[in-house]
Simulated assay, not measured.
Amino acid sequence: MSKRVCIIQPVMKQYRLPFFTALYALLAREGIDLQVVYGTPWQEESRRNDHATLPPPLGLLVKTRLLGGKLLWMPVLKPLLAADLVVVEHANKHLLNYLLAALSRVGLKRVAYWGHGHDRQAAPASLGERLKRHSLHWADWWFAYTADAARYITQQGFDSARITVVQNAIDTDALRAQLAAVTDADRTRLRAGLGWPDESRIAIYCGSLYENKRLDWLMEAAERLHARHPGFRLLIVGGGPMGQQVEDFARPRDWVHWAGPKFGREKAELLSLAEMWLNPGLVGLGILDAFCARLPLLTTDLPQHGPEIEYLEPGKNGLIAEPKAMAFADAIESLLGDPVGLAAMRAEAESSSHRYSIGAMAENFSGGVKQCLRLC
């Protein structure tokens, strides 16, 4: 009789589709059935406009309920009971996790957590972080995003033999192919459409538009740079709660363009115009998009970064400035004035993109699933 695995996600993101498809195929070869249950976006989440549908039988969409503006409930009892292993995001807001913890404690269900182990954006002494340190022991297995996340979980006393390092990634192969298909004629057409000369020095921000991205610093730094370098241009791609502020900033400035959310070929075309990727705030998986597009990533030294900040090697494939707009502007200017250094960073960024892939991530996750089913 085949084993069944259920992965529960609060919503389905565009960038996760290739991973779940690859994982499904790998597990099927081992006689393991995978189902991914995911919820409908709530109001604030839906504004990010980066969601997708995962077709059945692999995907199952359920109605998410947001209680009190903070707690999530998903009606997943049937797939949960049918599964030999349930994988959930390690997050205090998921009410389902507390039920699963109880079932795991009495030996009725194998439960694995998937995540960072802690919230880099929260104070370690906060009630939420104290709960997370306690609750990370409520699972039978851990799928840690990165090696650093695994080290943290081990430091809290969780058995390292029950941790799989996933090496969180996105579908860089697809993006790489889309980028390779962009021609010089395409770039000329795009710049003409923007009204920007061929010699423009274009930097790009690509990601969700919310406060933790420190878009205020991005806009202030851009103003400083354009005053010093009239050829500087800023391209902003993405959607989210700060969309109106971004639109208000871009509208009166012909050297700034907000494209809104873009995916696939359209996103690749815009990335191909840029020389560097700017993100003064929280850095997550977008770093792999940057590297795949041969763009060094420039950010600031904040404690809130996602674990993927491990992939950035300052001075090689990007820069980390002091956490303020002026220092961020200076870091950008240092590359604008150093074409040789910028070219070297772009080459190193592309090299870095090959170290992480959906295929490797799916292999890592599949190996962890098999170990867990065998040992737990």
Rank of each mutant, 00 (worst) to 15 (best):
K3P: 04
V5P: 09
C6G: 07
M12N: 03
K13I: 07
L17N: 06
F19L: 12
A22K: 07
A25G: 04
L26K: 15
G31V: 03
D33I: 03
L34Q: 02
Q35A: 00
T40H: 06
R48D: 08
H51I: 10
T53Y: 08
T53V: 15
P56I: 03
L60R: 10
G68A: 09
L72A: 09
W73S: 10
L81P: 04
A83W: 02
L85T: 06
H94V: 09
L95S: 14
L100V: 04
L100S: 00
A101P: 01
V106E: 11
L108D: 11
L108T: 10
K109S: 14
K109R: 15
V111Y: 13
G115V: 01
G117P: 00
D119E: 14
P124F: 11
L127W: 04
L136M: 15
A139Q: 14
W141M: 12
W142M: 11
F143I: 06
A144N: 06
T146C: 09
A149E: 01
A150R: 01
Q155M: 10
Q155R: 13
D159C: 04
A161M: 05
R162W: 01
I163Q: 10
N168T: 11
A169D: 13
D173S: 15
D173M: 12
A177D: 06
A177S: 11
A180P: 01
A181T: 10
D184T: 02
A185N: 14
D186M: 02
D186I: 01
T188Y: 01
T188D: 07
R191W: 08
L194N: 12
G195E: 13
W196M: 13
P197S: 10
E199K: 13
S200N: 13
Y205F: 15
N212Q: 12
K213G: 00
L215A: 03
L215V: 03
L218M: 08
A222K: 07
A222I: 08
E223Y: 05
H226Q: 14
P230S: 10
P230H: 11
G231A: 14
L235E: 01
G239L: 07
G239K: 06
D248I: 11
D248A: 15
R251Q: 13
R253F: 00
D254P: 12
H257N: 07
P261W: 06
F263T: 00
K267V: 00
L271I: 05
L273T: 08
A274R: 07
E275R: 12
M276I: 13
L278E: 09
V283M: 03
C292E: 00
L298A: 10
T299A: 04
T300F: 06
L302A: 05
P303C: 06
P307T: 03
L312A: 04
E313F: 02
G318A: 08
L319V: 08
E322G: 10
M326V: 14
A329N: 11
I332N: 01
L342W: 07
R346N: 05
S353L: 04
I358P: 00
M361S: 08
A362V: 08
E363R: 13
E363Q: 15
G368L: 02
K370F: 00
